[in-house]
């Protein structure tokens, strides 16, 4: 007869009442925050003198592994990287990471402290805010699980102010 089956069903439902909401809440609350670039300043022609970005001395700089235009700009304590690949990379899903070190740590993989900046949009120009002054940039192929290019970011005071301001689209 099926009374034991009904009892088992009731117990299953009771267990689901506890387990599923708890796991669902845990899964949703455990999601790491997504880095967003929504708060990048609108720099296209409306920069004010006070908030004007300035090119950091030592830029443009080069990446080893890929031909690219790369420059670092400062605005106050903020540092921004403008990047445009000059050749189309054969690696799909190319991601840009910032690391505080020289960018050579981690072998062909990513350094342990790598911070995701965003996706490299082909040969389109892109601007990211950097977590800190200095450090390095690493371009990493998610599909191939290997480093494609890297380069040390220039550090120091701002140099020239106009003509080199970031123009690129803002990643969000």
């Amino acid at each position: 007869m099926i009374r034991p089956l009904r009892t088992r069903h009731r117990r299953t439902v009771a267990a689901l009442w506890i387990v599923v909401p708890a796991l669902l809440a845990w899964a949703l609350l455990s999601r790491p925050p997504q880095p967003r670039m929504d708060d990048l300043p609108a720099w296209r022609g409306e920069a004010t003198p006070a908030g004007h970005p300035r090119r950091v001395a030592g830029t443009p700089f080069e990446l080893d592994g890929v031909r690219a235009e790369a420059a670092v700009f400062s605005r106050g304590v903020e540092r921004h990287l403008r990047l445009r690949l000059l050749e189309r990379s054969v690696a799909p899903d190319l991601l840009a990471y910032w690391t505080a070190g020289a960018g050579k740590d981690g072998g062909d993989g990513l350094p342990a402290d790598a911070t995701l900046l965003g996706r490299v949009p082909g040969t389109r120009e892109i601007v990211w805010r950097l977590p800190a002054d200095g450090g390095s940039i690493v371009l990493y192929s998610l599909a191939h699980q290997r480093r494609v290019a890297s380069g040390a970011l220039p550090t120091g005071s701002a140099g020239e102010s106009r003509g080199g301001e970031p123009r690129g689209g803002e990643e969000s």
């Binding site: 099926i2 089956l5 088992r8 069903h9 299953t12 439902v13 689901l16 387990v19 599923v20 796991l23 669902l24 899964a27 949703l28 999601r31």
Partner: peptide, 29 residues
């Protein structure tokens, strides 16, 4: 037999719980 068949098909609750997590950890990630 109906009881065994029912027990087997009660695994749908396990599948449902797995799918809730599949969605929460996948699409909603």
């Amino acid at each position: 037999t109906a009881p065994t068949w029912k027990r087997l098909h009660m695994l749908v609750y396990v599948a449902w719980a797995l799918l809730v997590l599949h969605v929460a950890l996948g699409a909603l990630y």
